[in-house]
């Protein structure tokens, strides 16, 4: 039922970034990914989300279980907050956007166009989108960028609520989300070895 990753290797731009990544999370658990910039956090998350093929190893999880949230929120500037949410709810085949509006404290802004939101409000809307997907495994890439302290706490509450109801989360972040129960995985120890090039060996240049 959970998410099992075994010996996963990810590549970016034709070069292996990570290798031997293994972890598993079960319902109610969260995993926080850490590591310096450019160590492959985004690449790993995009691989989990199925946007790019794994270079090796396997990702084992129930089909259509993962909801992905990237750096960009995927909001349409000229649509209102509720229109944006309704669209994603329809795409994921769910109806209810009220809970998400309520929990992310967006109720008062429901009719406002997304272009008139502040950066933090946009981010909250982007995270509210996760809630309307109705999917158990959240894969989040730096979800707290441009959130203030109160909003980070709010987000922490939402994640905790999601976990409490049997959900899972894989989160790449640098700051403390107030999730003491979350396991922490440092990606820098999975850094892929550099390929050794022999003289005149042309095969190494091709993955």
């Amino acid at each position: 039922m959970g998410l099992n990753v075994r010996d996963l290797a990810c590549a970016r731009g034709g070069l292996a970034m990570l290798e031997g990544v293994s972890f598993s999370i079960s319902p109610g658990a969260a995993l926080v990914l850490r590591g310096p910039n450019g160590c492959g956090k985004t690449t790993l998350l995009r691989t989990l989300a199925g946007l790019q093929p794994a270079f090796g190893g396997e990702v084992d999880c129930p089909p259509e279980a993962i909801a992905y949230a990237a750096h960009a929120d995927g909001l349409k500037a000229t649509l209102s907050v509720s229109e944006n949410l309704q669209f994603w709810a329809a795409i994921y085949g769910t109806r209810d956007i009220d809970t998400a509006l309520e929990q992310m404290n967006l109720r008062a802004l429901a009719g406002r166009a997304a272009q008139n939101l502040s950066a933090g409000q946009k981010r909250r809307l982007g995270l509210a989108r996760l809630m309307v997907t109705g999917r158990p495994i959240w894969v989040l890439d730096e979800p707290t960028v441009s959130l203030d302290v109160a909003s980070v706490a709010l987000f922490g509450d939402v994640v905790r609520h999601h976990l409490a109801s049997g959900g899972m989360a894989v989160i790449a972040t640098h700051i403390d989300l107030g999730l003491p129960e979350a396991e922490i995985l440092d990606l820098s120890r999975f850094k892929a070895r550099l390929p050794e090039f022999g003289v005149g060996d042309f095969n190494e240049a091709f993955l």
Partner: peptide
């Protein structure tokens, strides 16, 4: 093209090291 590809891989490797 194969040589260019190899050169690119070598440069990337230099940068990563």
């Amino acid at each position: 093209e194969i040589r260019a590809r190899r050169m690119k891989a070598l440069v990337t490797r230099e940068r990563m090291a």
